Computed example of a mutant assay.
Amino acid sequence: MSLSLPRARVIVPLLAALVLVAFAVWWLLLRAVAVPMATAQSGALPSQVHGPGTLQARVATTVAARINGRIVKLHADQGETVAADALLATLDTAETLNRQHSAKAAVTAALHQETAAEATVRHAQATLKLAEQDIARTRSLFKQGLVAKAELDKAVAAEATARGALASARATLKARQAEVARARAEIDVLDTQLGYAQVTAPFAGLIVRRYAEPGQTVSPGTPLFRLIDPSTLWVVMRVDESQSGAIKVGQPARIRLRTGAEVRGHVARIGLQSDTTTRELEVDVALDKAPQRYAIDEEALVAIRTGQAKGALFPASAVLRRGTQTGVLRVAGGRAVFTPIELGTVANGKAVATSGLKPGARIITRPTGIKPGTRVKPAKAPAR
């Protein structure tokens, strides 16, 4: 029986729409998407704490000028290794030498004044001794009635005057001696300052920066060089409080510098003061051996090995995060199922789930774009 033309015009589009709907349902719900899969294995990986940091030196100092002066010569430059007490810079000493000559002349003059004061004291002592003898004799004669009271009073006054003159002479001598001491102290200070004109390295090390240039006038405290001991290099690392409990002094670490160098190290010190804003604390990781090339304050990434994480081992590419949850897409009944896990550690392209995933479970190794509930099938291995 043939359909009439009007009915055919209605039924044919309807059938076509039903076919499209059926195809869409099959495409969205029934079609299995080919995805790469892997089977979780029982295993372990070294557990690690990762964090950023900067390269520093535990033993470091800024060598600065200690006197006013002009830089006559710089004997070292940044990048050079110097020995302890090595000459680094020479400052102009002309002004200090002039002051030293003046101070020596002041000492000579003060010594002459001291000698004169000593002579005055000796003279006053002799005068007092004569006055004391005279008053003793006059008192004896006065008792015998051989001299008048006026003579005795005169002798007493002379003795008092001589005693006062001696006290004054001794005070003058003391003042002259103080002047000599001050002048000699000034010479000692200037001698020390002349020594400061020769700027030397306080310890053997590497000059990482030169701040000054020849001809520059400097004052006390002006930086000249930055010196470090390369054997004390370490990375000042920042670690979240939640991870710090697993870190112990002596644990091995792997350090990757921004320049690309990779070196080994170990935990040397753990800070006890946490940052109230970032909730991080400082961990100092010492380098076992300095790399050939590095820069102080260079950025670094540190991985501290804190032990081993055991559980279900699987490719790290399978790790998926949904909001605050970490998990994987496990294959169950031919469909993708989001499974939350406790991630132990990730290393060398592998990950360990310490809970939430059992060995033998099939998981999707590249879950990007795959939604939970999607029908999946193993992707064919590429032909070689």
Rank of each mutant, 00 (worst) to 15 (best):
S2K: 11
L173T: 00
G245Q: 15
P223T: 01
R9L: 14
Q133W: 12
G333I: 02
L130V: 05
Q144C: 00
T61N: 10
T276D: 15
R58Q: 08
W234E: 05
T138E: 11
I67S: 02
E342P: 00
A24T: 12
W234D: 03
A105H: 09
P367T: 05
T324A: 13
L357C: 06
Y294D: 05
K154G: 05
Q41Y: 14
G69K: 00
L141R: 11
A89L: 10
A84P: 01
A148K: 14
A212T: 02
A379Y: 09
A171L: 10
M37T: 07
A201F: 07
T326Q: 10
G215Y: 09
N348W: 14
V249A: 08
A336V: 04
V25K: 15
D240H: 14
P36I: 04
A312T: 02
R375K: 15
W26C: 01
T365H: 12
L20N: 09
A86Q: 14
K310Q: 13
S274K: 12
R66E: 09
L320I: 03
Y211Q: 03
T365S: 05
K350W: 04
Q325L: 07
H50N: 13
G369I: 06
E179M: 00
A300I: 10
V285Y: 15
K380M: 06
A57M: 07
A246N: 07
T90D: 01
G334S: 08
I135Y: 15
G311I: 00
A316S: 09
A76T: 03
V218H: 08
V156H: 14
I270E: 05
Q292I: 01
G164T: 12
A124M: 05
V249H: 15
D134R: 12
R279H: 13
R293V: 03
V72D: 07
V147I: 06
D188I: 04
T127M: 15
K371E: 08
E95I: 01
V63S: 06
Q325F: 03
R99E: 05
R210F: 04
L152D: 02
D153Q: 13
A295R: 15
T217L: 10
A353S: 02
